[in-house]
Design a protein around this nucleic acid. Structure first.
Lengths: 193, 193
DNA sequence: GTTGTGTGTCAACAGCCGTTGGCATACGGT
DNA sequence: ACCGTATGCCAACGGCTGTTGACACACAAC
């Protein structure tokens, strides 16, 4: 976003901006929105707190920048219909383990209204539209996506936030093999009663 | 706890204590741990903030009292083994809809370490021991309980915290019919791979 | 070299927070 | 009627927070 838009004028402060963003993501992920203070984030980035204000306007603005996120869902039309569940869990797990942005967003979503809405938007928009790509009953796609979100977010909550021992100890592959059938049924199973 | 232990000496302040606790649960459920201020809770209870300190010692103490919770899981040995999932979801949904304590605990668990540990304890102890009552492979009971927790907590997170529209709109019975088979498989299904 | 602009530091403000101690009042036992 | 105790309010403290404005320095353009 920063360097790519103005390649001729790379700002000297781009490194600082990036350092702030990285520290912010760490703190938000570890402490949640209200406990993560601008002073602590600035200290992590070895910079004065006022710089954060200058570059991101406010704490809300900083969080908005730090929680920018794209699920990068794969093209589900290219997946055989009986493997949808497995592909989805595997993708989400990889996305979660490799990027703390989602953990930051999830932690903050419980207390910060803005974060809640962003989380809701991500899963309502990106996931629902992905589910809609393969043709099922349009009236059902929304709740199929909602149910998938409930299991995916429950997985993340118990593994990364609450850290329930069995959920932490299981390997990604074990988690996939247990939860893939669940998602598969939510996605393609017959509507229940 | 208060009146029952000393039935001969009902404190005159029991009503105040209860009012504080009720207001605290509401605020913690609505705002989370850090945004729920003692001043706001005291105002809701129409009382001075210092009273909260006198009766509960500190904000942590107040939260500990407000988040006291028992899942009251039914005796699963009395349930036919193919109905375990349905019974469990129905019980949890009823417990969640009727008592905001769990929502308060869940909201706080994302940011407050004490709340996280309590949540972990509740689901690790109460749920695991309930799952252990009907005889399955003891080596698997912990992860079965963990998986059940992931779907149950994911349900609560998407319905009561993030408020994903499809998860909010579904009736409890619809939720039961969709998720009961999931829990059933986590509880009694064959170990995957 | 001068000027202008971007980058960074420092000190401080106002506000809210949890928490404390003192003081008034009402109650219950004798 | 008296006294100890419980209950409640009030004012204030110290600390931390997001945020702001003034000031110092570095760099690029001309």
């Amino acid at each position: 976003m920063t360097a790519s838009t103005h390649p001729a004028h790379p700002r000297r402060s781009d490194a600082t901006r990036a350092a702030i963003l990285r520290a912010a993501r760490e703190r938000f992920a570890a402490d949640g929105y209200e406990r993560a203070t601008i002073r602590a984030i600035a200290a992590d980035a070895r910079i004065d707190p006022s710089m954060v204000m200058r570059y991101y306007g406010s704490k809300e603005g900083l969080f908005a920048a730090a929680a920018e996120f794209d699920l990068r869902l794969p093209d589900l039309t290219a997946v055989s219909s009986e493997q949808l569940g497995e592909v989805l869990v595997r993708h989400f797990l990889a996305r979660w383990e490799g990027d703390e942005t989602l953990v930051a967003l999830l932690r903050a979503a419980s207390t910060n209204p803005g974060a809640t809405e962003r989380m809701r938007g991500i899963f309502a928009d990106q996931l629902t539209s992905a589910v809609a790509t393969f043709g099922t009953d349009p009236a059902l796609t929304a709740r199929r996506a909602g149910l998938v979100a409930s299991q995916i977010l429950g997985l993340a909550l118990t593994r990364y936030i609450v850290r329930l021992p069995p959920m932490v100890d299981m390997t990604p592959e074990e988690l996939v093999s247990w939860t893939a059938p669940t998602l598969q049924r939510y996605l393609t199973g017959l509507p229940q009663t």
